[in-house]
Amino acid sequence: MPDLLPEIQEIFRDIFDDPQLTITRDSNASTVEDWDSLAHLNLVTAISQKYKIKFALGELQELKNVGDMIDLIQTKIAQK
């Protein structure tokens, strides 16, 4: 399975309009500046649109960091 981190990092860079932003699997809302609720909604919406996947209610609340998010995206893509 391809490593989605580089792609996800690109999405983060675009969404936060910061070409230098570096994301790791450990990144989360407290380590990324400006990651507020609207940015979170933007991220989720953009990722859903890009990968044509849909997050079920509650799935996102359990994610601790970007690594969890990538794993969930990959599970979703595999289930398509």
Binding site: I11, D14, I15, F16, D17, N42, T45, A46, Q49, K50
Partner: peptide
């Protein structure tokens, strides 16, 4: 395309 607009809107706005 809307999905691109969603991702790039901050830069576009700037």
């Amino acid at each position: 395309p809307l999905d691109e607009l969603l991702i790039k809107r901050r830069g576009l706005r700037r």
